[in-house]
Simulated assay, not measured.
Amino acid sequence: MAADTRPVSGLAGRYALALLELADDKKKLDTVAEDLRGLKALIDDSEELRRLLRNPLFGRGRQAKAVSAILDKAGVDDVTRNFCLVVTRNGRLFALPEMIEGYLQELARRRGEVTAVVTSAGELSDQQRLQLEKALKTSVGGKVNIESRVDPAIIGGMVVRVGSRMIDNSLRSKLNRLQHAMKGAG
């Protein structure tokens, strides 16, 4: 499995790279990465927050006040806080999720790490996670970060994405393949 090793680009990429350089200068690469992962989870879990990010009708002042309150509650580092507020003041809040993704991708790329997005029907146990990490490390030949997602709709098994490659070993896909095979046989 080959990882996507292209550097980030576009508006979100420029902001992500600027944050990466600033975090590197301040020796806070990992601190900012953890803050961004936490913000990403907040954004993923809140339709209200996603609406705030996307809707310019809220106005920059109102967005800045809301973002500031969220950052305070999340307890993020000053580097992360200042970055998010600059993004808000510049009217680029809509691109924050892509900036976060760009930062995390570029940090992993520079470190030679690969991120595998693993979707399973339920939470992975520590043992399953370790076994999967070991198998993926052997497969990709380097450090692997696992981003776990839960989707009960896959019924069982898992779907693993590394870069542009996907392995779908879910029970739902197996049942779909069996259904198609039975239609063809009849």
Score class of each variant (00 low, 15 high):
Lys40Ala: 15
Leu29Ile: 02
Gln131Ser: 11
Leu132Thr: 05
Leu29Tyr: 00
Cys84Met: 12
Thr80Glu: 00
Gly112Cys: 00
Thr119Val: 10
Ile167Ala: 14
Glu34Val: 05
Gly38Lys: 07
Leu104Cys: 08
Cys84Ala: 15
Val118Leu: 01
Arg6Cys: 10
Val86Gly: 05
Gly163Gln: 05
Leu20Trp: 01
Val150Met: 10
Met1Trp: 04
Gly141Tyr: 10
Val67Phe: 01
Pro56Trp: 03
Val159Ser: 11
Lys73Asp: 12
Glu21Arg: 15
Ala66Ser: 01
Val144Ala: 03
Arg6Ser: 12
Ser164Leu: 10
Leu107Met: 11
Asn55Ser: 14
Val150Ala: 12
Tyr15Trp: 11
Val117Asp: 09
Gly186Asn: 04
Ala74Tyr: 13
Arg14Pro: 00
Phe94Glu: 14
Leu57Gly: 08
Ile70Asn: 10
Gly75Pro: 05
Leu53Ala: 02
Ala108Asp: 15
Val76Arg: 11
Glu47Leu: 12
Val87Trp: 06
Thr31Trp: 07
Asp126Ser: 13
Ala64Cys: 02
Gln179Thr: 13
Ile155Cys: 09
Lys174Tyr: 03
Arg177Asn: 10
Ser139Trp: 14
Ile154Ser: 04
Ser139Ala: 15
Val32Lys: 10
Ala64Gln: 11
Ala135Leu: 12
Phe58Gly: 12
Thr115Ser: 11
Ala12Phe: 09
Leu17Ala: 10
Leu17Gly: 04
Lys27Ile: 04
Met182Lys: 09
Val87Met: 06
Cys84His: 07
Lys28Asn: 03
His180Cys: 01
Arg149Gly: 03
Arg129Cys: 05
Arg6Gly: 11
Arg165Ser: 06
Gln127Thr: 15
Met99Lys: 07
Ala23Phe: 08
Ile70Ser: 02
Met99Val: 15
Gln131Gly: 13
Cys84Phe: 05
Met1Glu: 11
Ala181Gly: 04
Met99Cys: 13
Val67Gln: 04
Asp168Cys: 08
Gly10Met: 03
Leu22Ala: 10
Lys40Ile: 04
Val140Thr: 12
Asn82Tyr: 13
Gly141Phe: 12
Gly38Asn: 06
Lys73Gly: 09
Thr80Tyr: 07
Leu57Pro: 01
Gly112Ser: 01
Arg111Thr: 08
Ile146Gly: 05
Ile155Tyr: 01
Leu22Asn: 01
Val162Thr: 04
Gly102Gln: 06
Val117Phe: 01
Asn145Ser: 11
Gly122His: 09
Arg50His: 05
Gly184Ala: 15
Asn82Gln: 14
Val114Thr: 15
Ala116Gly: 11
Thr5Cys: 07
Gln179Trp: 01
Ile155Met: 08
Leu49Ala: 13
Val118Trp: 06
Met1Leu: 10
Leu17Pro: 01
Leu57Trp: 02
Asp126Cys: 02
Ala185Asn: 09
Ser9Gln: 08
Asn145Gly: 08
Glu101Trp: 00
Glu47Tyr: 02
Leu49Phe: 15
Arg172Met: 14
Ser9Arg: 14
Arg149Phe: 00
Met99His: 10
Ile70Gln: 09
Gly142Ser: 15
Glu113His: 02
Phe83Asn: 06
Glu123Arg: 12
His180Asn: 10
Gly157Phe: 05
Ala41Leu: 15
Leu104Trp: 10
Ile100Ser: 09
Met166Gln: 07
Gly141Ser: 12
Asp30Tyr: 03
Gly102Asp: 12
Val86Gln: 06
Asn145Ile: 14
Leu29Thr: 02
Ile155Arg: 00
Glu48Trp: 09
Lys137Ala: 11
Lys174Ala: 08
Gly61Trp: 00
Gly61Ser: 14
Leu171Tyr: 05
